[in-house]
Protein backbone atom coordinates (compact mmCIF):
# COMPACT_ATOMS: atom_id res chain seq x y z
CA UNK A 1 0.00 0.00 0.00
CA UNK A 2 1.76 3.14 1.18
CA UNK A 3 4.81 3.89 -0.89
CA UNK A 4 7.99 5.92 -0.55
CA UNK A 5 8.56 8.81 -2.92
CA UNK A 6 12.01 10.07 -3.72
CA UNK A 7 12.46 13.34 -5.56
CA UNK A 8 15.85 13.97 -7.12
CA UNK A 9 16.95 17.32 -8.54
CA UNK A 10 13.51 18.33 -9.78
CA UNK A 11 13.23 21.51 -11.86
CA UNK A 12 9.69 22.59 -12.70
CA UNK A 13 8.94 24.84 -15.65
CA UNK A 14 5.96 26.74 -17.01
CA UNK A 15 7.07 26.91 -20.65
CA UNK A 16 10.41 28.77 -20.36
CA UNK A 17 9.77 30.05 -16.85
CA UNK A 18 11.61 28.08 -14.19
CA UNK A 19 9.19 28.06 -11.24
CA UNK A 20 10.86 25.63 -8.85
CA UNK A 21 14.47 24.58 -8.90
CA UNK A 22 16.45 21.68 -7.60
CA UNK A 23 14.08 19.95 -5.19
CA UNK A 24 15.49 16.81 -3.61
CA UNK A 25 13.56 15.09 -0.84
CA UNK A 26 12.33 11.75 0.39
CA UNK A 27 8.74 11.27 1.44
CA UNK A 28 8.40 8.35 3.85
CA UNK A 29 5.49 5.94 3.68
CA UNK A 30 2.85 5.95 6.44
CA UNK A 31 3.73 9.46 7.48
CA UNK A 32 2.46 12.97 6.94
CA UNK A 33 4.79 15.36 5.18
CA UNK A 34 3.80 19.01 5.37
CA UNK A 35 5.05 21.61 2.90
CA UNK A 36 5.05 25.17 4.17
CA UNK A 37 6.26 28.44 2.74
CA UNK A 38 5.10 31.84 1.54
CA UNK A 39 2.65 32.22 -1.34
CA UNK A 40 4.06 31.79 -4.81
CA UNK A 41 7.11 29.79 -3.75
CA UNK A 42 6.04 26.67 -5.64
CA UNK A 43 4.61 24.36 -2.97
CA UNK A 44 1.43 23.61 -4.90
CA UNK A 45 3.28 23.43 -8.20
CA UNK A 46 5.65 20.89 -6.65
CA UNK A 47 2.76 18.91 -5.20
CA UNK A 48 1.11 18.72 -8.60
CA UNK A 49 4.26 17.30 -10.17
CA UNK A 50 4.04 14.30 -7.84
CA UNK A 51 0.98 12.90 -9.62
CA UNK A 52 1.69 14.48 -13.01
CA UNK A 53 -1.12 17.02 -12.76
CA UNK A 54 1.39 19.79 -13.48
CA UNK A 55 1.63 18.88 -17.16
CA UNK A 56 -2.09 19.62 -17.65
CA UNK A 57 -1.07 23.27 -17.88
CA UNK A 58 -0.15 23.98 -21.52
CA UNK A 59 3.63 23.79 -22.12
CA UNK A 60 4.36 22.97 -18.48
CA UNK A 61 7.18 20.45 -17.99
CA UNK A 62 9.65 19.12 -15.45
CA UNK A 63 13.24 17.97 -15.41
CA UNK A 64 14.64 15.59 -12.84
CA UNK A 65 13.37 12.44 -11.24
CA UNK A 66 10.43 11.46 -9.09
CA UNK A 67 10.79 7.87 -7.94
CA UNK A 68 7.95 5.94 -6.38
CA UNK A 69 9.40 2.75 -4.92
CA UNK A 70 12.37 2.98 -7.30
CA UNK A 71 10.23 3.57 -10.39
CA UNK A 72 10.61 6.91 -12.16
CA UNK A 73 7.20 8.53 -12.61
CA UNK A 74 8.58 10.65 -15.43
CA UNK A 75 10.34 7.75 -17.16
CA UNK A 76 9.68 6.83 -20.77
CA UNK A 77 6.43 4.94 -21.27
CA UNK A 78 4.92 5.91 -17.92
CA UNK A 79 1.22 6.67 -18.32
CA UNK A 80 0.13 9.73 -16.32
CA UNK A 81 -3.29 8.15 -15.84
CA UNK A 82 -1.59 5.12 -14.26
CA UNK A 83 0.43 7.38 -11.99
CA UNK A 84 -2.73 9.09 -10.77
CA UNK A 85 -4.24 5.72 -10.00
CA UNK A 86 -1.54 5.31 -7.36
CA UNK A 87 -1.36 8.92 -6.20
CA UNK A 88 -4.66 10.60 -5.36
CA UNK A 89 -5.25 14.27 -4.75
CA UNK A 90 -7.50 16.54 -2.70
CA UNK A 91 -7.80 20.14 -3.80
CA UNK A 92 -7.91 23.46 -2.06
CA UNK A 93 -11.53 24.12 -2.90
CA UNK A 94 -14.00 21.27 -2.47
CA UNK A 95 -15.03 20.16 -5.96
CA UNK A 96 -17.66 17.42 -5.86
CA UNK A 97 -19.15 16.60 -9.26
CA UNK A 98 -22.32 18.71 -9.43
CA UNK A 99 -24.22 16.24 -11.62
CA UNK A 100 -23.71 13.34 -9.23
CA UNK A 101 -25.28 12.27 -5.97
CA UNK A 102 -23.28 11.86 -2.78
CA UNK A 103 -23.12 8.13 -3.44
CA UNK A 104 -22.02 8.57 -7.05
CA UNK A 105 -19.41 11.10 -6.04
CA UNK A 106 -17.76 8.58 -3.75
CA UNK A 107 -18.07 5.88 -6.39
CA UNK A 108 -16.88 8.27 -9.12
CA UNK A 109 -13.37 6.85 -9.32
CA UNK A 110 -14.83 3.46 -10.22
CA UNK A 111 -17.89 4.54 -12.14
CA UNK A 112 -16.10 7.05 -14.35
CA UNK A 113 -13.60 4.33 -15.23
CA UNK A 114 -16.41 1.87 -15.97
CA UNK A 115 -15.16 -0.64 -13.44
CA UNK A 116 -17.73 -3.41 -13.25
CA UNK A 117 -18.39 -4.15 -9.63
CA UNK A 118 -21.23 -5.81 -7.78
CA UNK A 119 -23.81 -3.47 -6.25
CA UNK A 120 -23.23 -4.89 -2.78
CA UNK A 121 -19.47 -4.48 -3.06
CA UNK A 122 -19.88 -0.91 -4.28
CA UNK A 123 -22.24 -0.15 -1.39
CA UNK A 124 -19.67 -1.52 1.01
CA UNK A 125 -16.89 0.49 -0.61
CA UNK A 126 -18.91 3.71 -0.47
CA UNK A 127 -19.74 3.15 3.18
CA UNK A 128 -16.14 2.30 4.06
CA UNK A 129 -14.81 5.38 2.26
CA UNK A 130 -17.37 7.67 3.86
CA UNK A 131 -16.63 6.18 7.26
CA UNK A 132 -12.91 6.75 6.79
CA UNK A 133 -13.70 10.34 5.87
CA UNK A 134 -15.82 10.76 9.04
CA UNK A 135 -18.81 11.64 6.91
CA UNK A 136 -20.91 8.47 7.01
CA UNK A 137 -23.04 9.38 10.01
CA UNK A 138 -23.90 12.76 8.51
CA UNK A 139 -24.89 11.60 5.04
CA UNK A 140 -25.99 7.97 5.37
CA UNK A 141 -29.66 8.94 5.07
CA UNK A 142 -29.26 11.12 2.01
CA UNK A 143 -26.85 9.28 -0.26
CA UNK A 144 -28.98 9.83 -3.41
CA UNK A 145 -29.06 13.60 -2.84
CA UNK A 146 -26.73 15.89 -4.82
CA UNK A 147 -23.22 16.26 -3.39
CA UNK A 148 -23.18 20.00 -3.96
CA UNK A 149 -25.97 20.40 -1.38
CA UNK A 150 -23.57 19.62 1.47
CA UNK A 151 -21.78 22.26 3.52
CA UNK A 152 -18.25 23.29 2.57
CA UNK A 153 -16.60 21.13 5.22
CA UNK A 154 -18.78 18.14 4.33
CA UNK A 155 -18.01 18.64 0.65
CA UNK A 156 -14.30 18.58 1.38
CA UNK A 157 -14.64 15.37 3.37
CA UNK A 158 -16.72 13.99 0.50
CA UNK A 159 -13.81 14.80 -1.82
CA UNK A 160 -11.45 13.00 0.54
CA UNK A 161 -13.80 9.99 0.58
CA UNK A 162 -13.83 10.10 -3.20
CA UNK A 163 -10.03 10.19 -3.30
CA UNK A 164 -9.56 7.26 -0.91
CA UNK A 165 -12.32 5.15 -2.48
CA UNK A 166 -9.95 4.23 -5.31
CA UNK A 167 -7.38 3.08 -2.72
CA UNK A 168 -4.36 5.12 -3.77
CA UNK A 169 -0.90 4.54 -2.26
CA UNK A 170 -0.22 8.20 -1.75
CA UNK A 171 -2.60 11.07 -0.98
CA UNK A 172 -1.70 14.63 -1.92
CA UNK A 173 -3.58 17.46 -0.22
CA UNK A 174 -3.33 21.00 -1.50
CA UNK A 175 -4.36 23.29 1.36
CA UNK A 176 -7.40 21.11 2.09
CA UNK A 177 -8.60 23.26 4.99
CA UNK A 178 -8.01 26.77 3.71
CA UNK A 179 -11.68 27.29 2.84
CA UNK A 180 -13.05 25.69 6.00
CA UNK A 181 -14.03 26.77 9.49
CA UNK A 182 -12.10 25.56 12.56
CA UNK A 183 -14.54 22.72 13.30
CA UNK A 184 -14.37 21.25 9.82
CA UNK A 185 -10.62 21.78 9.90
CA UNK A 186 -10.45 19.82 13.13
CA UNK A 187 -12.46 17.01 11.54
CA UNK A 188 -10.14 16.85 8.55
CA UNK A 189 -7.00 16.99 10.69
CA UNK A 190 -8.28 14.07 12.77
CA UNK A 191 -8.95 12.30 9.53
CA UNK A 192 -5.42 12.92 8.27
CA UNK A 193 -4.03 11.44 11.46
CA UNK A 194 -6.17 8.33 10.96
CA UNK A 195 -5.35 7.99 7.29
CA UNK A 196 -1.64 8.12 8.07
CA UNK A 197 -1.88 4.50 9.23
CA UNK A 198 -2.46 3.38 5.67
CA UNK A 199 -1.35 6.07 3.30
CA UNK A 200 1.57 8.28 2.49
CA UNK A 201 0.26 11.80 2.87
CA UNK A 202 1.72 15.03 1.56
CA UNK A 203 -0.06 18.19 2.61
CA UNK A 204 0.51 21.78 1.54
CA UNK A 205 -0.59 24.25 4.17
CA UNK A 206 -0.33 27.92 5.06
CA UNK A 207 -1.31 27.18 8.61
CA UNK A 208 1.80 26.47 10.66
CA UNK A 209 -0.14 25.24 13.65
CA UNK A 210 -1.76 22.75 11.33
CA UNK A 211 1.63 21.60 10.06
CA UNK A 212 2.76 21.17 13.65
CA UNK A 213 -0.40 19.30 14.62
CA UNK A 214 -0.62 16.79 11.81
CA UNK A 215 2.76 16.29 10.22
CA UNK A 216 5.78 14.17 11.05
CA UNK A 217 8.11 15.84 8.58
CA UNK A 218 7.99 19.43 7.37
CA UNK A 219 9.58 20.93 4.30
CA UNK A 220 10.07 24.66 3.99
CA UNK A 221 9.85 26.17 0.51
CA UNK A 222 10.97 29.68 -0.31
CA UNK A 223 11.96 31.91 -3.18
CA UNK A 224 15.69 32.36 -3.37
CA UNK A 225 15.05 36.04 -4.04
CA UNK A 226 12.39 38.13 -5.75
CA UNK A 227 12.25 37.00 -9.39
CA UNK A 228 14.29 33.86 -8.73
CA UNK A 229 12.74 30.37 -8.84
CA UNK A 230 11.43 28.83 -5.65
CA UNK A 231 13.04 25.86 -4.01
CA UNK A 232 13.16 23.61 -0.97
CA UNK A 233 15.12 25.36 1.77
CA UNK A 234 15.16 22.53 4.24
CA UNK A 235 13.24 19.45 5.26
CA UNK A 236 13.41 17.74 8.60
CA UNK A 237 11.22 16.36 11.36
CA UNK A 238 8.45 18.77 12.24
CA UNK A 239 9.75 19.18 15.79
CA UNK A 240 13.15 20.17 14.51
CA UNK A 241 11.82 22.60 11.90
CA UNK A 242 9.66 24.40 14.43
CA UNK A 243 12.11 24.45 17.31
CA UNK A 244 15.59 24.41 15.95
CA UNK A 245 15.74 24.78 12.17
CA UNK A 246 19.09 24.72 10.44
CA UNK A 247 18.35 27.64 8.20
CA UNK A 248 17.86 31.23 9.29
CA UNK A 249 15.02 31.93 6.83
CA UNK A 250 13.12 28.89 8.12
CA UNK A 251 13.53 30.20 11.62
CA UNK A 252 12.22 33.60 10.52
CA UNK A 253 9.26 32.08 8.73
CA UNK A 254 8.07 29.70 11.42
CA UNK A 255 8.46 32.33 14.11
CA UNK A 256 6.55 34.91 12.11
CA UNK A 257 9.47 37.28 11.57
CA UNK A 258 9.31 36.82 7.85
CA UNK A 259 9.04 39.90 5.78
Amino acid sequence: MAKRIEVKGLDIYYDKFLAVQGVTMTIEPRSVTALIGPSGCGKSTFLRTLNRMHELVPKARVEGKVLMDEQDLYGAGVDPVGVRRHIGMVFQRPNPFPTMSIYDNVAAGLKLNNKRIKKADLDALVERSLRSANLWEEVKDRLPKPGSGLSGGQQQRLCIARAIAVAPDVLLMDEPCSALDPISTQAIEDLITELKEQYTIVIVTHNMQQAQRVSDVTGFFNLKAIGEPGGLVEIDTTTKIFTNPANQSTEDYVSGRFG
Binding site: L56, N95, F97
Partner: peptide
Protein backbone atom coordinates in the same frame (compact mmCIF):
# COMPACT_ATOMS: atom_id res chain seq x y z
CA UNK B 1 -17.50 24.09 -16.80
CA UNK B 2 -15.02 24.81 -14.00
CA UNK B 3 -11.54 23.47 -14.63
CA UNK B 4 -11.56 22.13 -11.08
CA UNK B 5 -14.03 19.44 -12.12
CA UNK B 6 -11.73 18.29 -14.91
CA UNK B 7 -8.82 18.22 -12.48
CA UNK B 8 -10.86 16.34 -9.90
CA UNK B 9 -11.60 13.75 -12.54
CA UNK B 10 -7.98 13.51 -13.73
CA UNK B 11 -6.87 13.12 -10.12
CA UNK B 12 -9.11 10.04 -9.89
CA UNK B 13 -7.09 8.55 -12.76
CA UNK B 14 -9.90 9.05 -15.26
CA UNK B 15 -8.58 9.39 -18.83
CA UNK B 16 -9.24 12.63 -20.67
CA UNK B 17 -11.87 11.30 -23.08
CA UNK B 18 -13.85 9.76 -20.25
CA UNK B 19 -13.56 12.99 -18.27
CA UNK B 20 -15.06 14.87 -21.19
CA UNK B 21 -17.77 12.30 -21.75
CA UNK B 22 -18.81 11.71 -18.16
CA UNK B 23 -17.94 14.88 -16.28
CA UNK B 24 -17.68 17.83 -18.64
CA UNK B 25 -20.59 17.06 -20.96
CA UNK B 26 -23.12 16.11 -18.25
CA UNK B 27 -22.26 19.31 -16.38
Amino acid sequence: VPNELREASYALAVPKWRTILKVVLPT
